[in-house]
């Protein structure tokens, strides 16, 4: 297996008039070529920020005081903007969360799919149009030739998401970053979109990192899941281990917060409290104040990743006793 992305001790902060927000506080992970990784967390957990920041997509208010990010042979954080522009959209495709802003409202959708191919000098205009139509068809747009000249506002949310996927895949990227690709969609449409995306990725043997807040989505499509909280990775697990033996109290809490229609006898047990904005860097474990198992050490000492098995790591001081604590 070859490593395609390696992020090491990444920190991201936002400078606000009120102070500094510590959005990502030391994130380390590796992505192997061909993997489908899910980054799971609630709002403010730093899941989108850790991915968008390494592509310098967050503007000037985001500040990266520390960390490395390597994509193939490139060092993303020290690269010039000019070189980075040659990677973004070409080797790394991105599907943005916001359906309203992800597409240019004044440009015909076909043109938006062609644009990255021309920008990166991949092919001629005529060839780009041919590819764009094929791509829109692959993404499930019926009658792509006539849809080609439409504007985004003429399409439904589901169709716009499919166009956005076509834009992201236009240059056949090696790595695809999908930021909450199904969040704004209806239940059935969201399953359609996931299925189309998975097929497209498998066909291209593309590596995918999908940011999601939906445990069900992550559990059903990803090969591996990174669970984030307070700008840190709490658990990093291969999917079977994630499903069968979730180990971090936060992951367990998330699971217990979802009412299962299949197992309706299992009572709902939400995590107390809510996520907060980190105006100060968390001293110990960021989850300590909501954790039912927190001990004094959790408040004071930052938990390191502990290996539970070959493909399962957890950042919890009490990981060894967790199975007895949960009962």
């Amino acid at each position: 297996m070859t490593m395609i992305l390696e992020v090491n001790d990444l920190h991201v902060q936002f400078n606000r008039p009120e102070g500094t927000v510590h959005a990502v506080n030391g994130v380390t992970f590796q992505v192997q070529a061909g993997e489908w990784i899910g980054v799971l967390g609630e709002s403010g957990s730093g899941k989108s920020v850790s991915l968008l920041s390494i592509l310098k997509l967050l503007g000037d208010s985001a500040n990266i005081p520390q960390g490395q990010a390597r994509f193939a042979e490139h060092d993303l954080l020290t690269m010039s903007e000019r070189k980075l522009r040659r990677l973004r959209g070409k080797d790394i495709g991105i599907i943005f969360q916001n359906l309203a802003n992800g597409l240019d409202p004044l440009m015909r959708i076909g043109q938006q799919v062609i644009e990255p191919m021309l920008e990166h000098n991949i092919c001629t205009k005529r060839e780009a149009k041919r590819r764009a139509i094929a791509l829109l068809a692959e993404m499930g747009l019926s009658d792509p030739e006539s849809q080609f000249n439409r504007y985004p506002f003429e399409l439904s949310g589901g169709m716009r998401q499919r166009v956005m996927m076509a834009v992201a895949l236009a240059c056949n990227p090696k790595l695809l970053i999908a930021d909450e690709p199904t969040t704004a969609l209806d239940t059935t449409v969201s399953v359609q979109v996931l299925s189309t995306l998975r097929e497209a990725c498998e066909r291209r043997n593309m590596t995918t990192i999908m940011v999601t807040h939906d445990l069900g989505v992550a559990a059903n499509v990803c090969d591996r899941v990174l669970v984030m909280y307070g700008g840190m990775i709490m658990e990093d697990a291969e999917i079977d281990g994630f499903i069968k033996h979730p180990a971090h109290p936060y992951t367990l809490g998330l699971k217990a917060s979802i009412f299962s229609l299949k197992h309706r006898d299992i009572p709902l047990k939400p995590i107390a409290g809510s996520a907060k904005t980190w105006w100060l860097k968390p001293l110990g474990c960021p989850f300590a104040e909501r954790c039912p198992f927190a001990i004094e050490k959790c408040w004071k000492v930052h938990p390191d990743m502990v290996k539970l098995s070959e493909q399962h790591e957890v950042a919890c001081h009490r990981s060894q006793e967790m199975s007895t604590l949960v009962g």
Partner: peptide, 18 residues
């Protein structure tokens, strides 16, 4: 179409829907 946490990897949704 409701994606719930499956019992194991083998029980994952086939993502078939309308």
């Amino acid at each position: 179409s409701v994606l719930e946490i499956p019992d194991s990897k083998a029980h994952r949704s086939t993502l078939e829907t309308l």
